[in-house]
């Protein structure tokens, strides 16, 4: 677990500073909101695009997320989780709500659509060369790890996290028995955990 923790630490390296930003936002400090936006815009926008698969929709969602941050930051409690977890959970929930409410789930998923879903072949247009390099490297490393997970397991992970399907829905959409879906989900996450641990030297 050392490496997983190390990676999470990289993802949440500024938890103290970000907590301070959230407290300031709770006191309606616009400069703090601006700073937090700049820190998280790439991560959260990329997450939105991965879920709704539409840049314009993703930009609307990003705006909605930060309006909610503006409204709810005073209630943020660091003892309940990191700013990273709070923001990514909030963003994913909003994005999943969007695709559910707009009936995005018309097409059946198949074992072959995984790469398009989790690894959209869209050009990167990071504005800061340094943060672009770091974010791309981190993203690339996790993508490489995900690609190495058996496709049947990866498909289930992606369908659940990025498409918002429950296990029953995945079974219905793919025709895979429910027990197999549960088993693949477990195996996929454990495999991901093991592979992250195997990346120790690169971290």
């Amino acid at each position: 677990m050392f490496i997983l923790l190390a990676l999470l630490k990289k993802l949440t390296a500024d938890a103290g500073r970000e907590t301070d930003l959230l407290h300031r936002i709770g006191r309606k400090d616009e400069a703090a909101l601006s700073e937090l936006y700049d820190l998280y815009k790439t991560l959260l926008y990329s997450l939105c695009v991965s879920i709704v698969k539409n840049r314009a929709e993703a930009e609307e969602l990003l705006q909605e997320v930060f309006v909610q941050v503006w409204d709810k930051a005073s209630g943020f409690d660091r003892t309940k989780g990191t700013p990273y977890a709070w923001l990514t959970t909030m963003t994913r929930n909003k994005a999943i709500d969007t695709i559910r409410s707009r009936a995005y789930k018309e097409n059946n998923i198949t074992d072959n659509d995984t790469d398009d879903t989790i690894l959209p072949l869209l050009p990167s247009d990071e504005s800061s060369p340094y943060s672009a390099a770091v974010a791309k490297e981190r993203s690339s490393m996790i993508q490489t790890i995900l690609k190495a997970i058996p496709e049947q397991q990866r498909t289930v992970l992606v369908a659940a996290y990025f498409d918002g399907y429950s296990q029953t829905e995945i079974a219905e959409k793919t025709g895979i028995p429910l027990g197999t879906v549960k088993s693949r989900m477990r195996q996929g996450l454990i495999k991901l955990q093991q592979m992250l641990a195997g990346k120790e030297e690169q971290l």
Binding site: M1, L11, S139
Partner: peptide, 26 residues
């Protein structure tokens, strides 16, 4: 451990930057 593992997933997406106008609108 499983929750920590799943927390890595948001960072797996291809890194894209939103238009500057999003911040202005916000």
């Amino acid at each position: 451990e499983i929750l920590n593992t799943a927390q890595v997933l948001p960072a797996s997406a291809e890194q894209l930057t939103p238009a500057d106008s999003v911040k202005d609108k916000l």
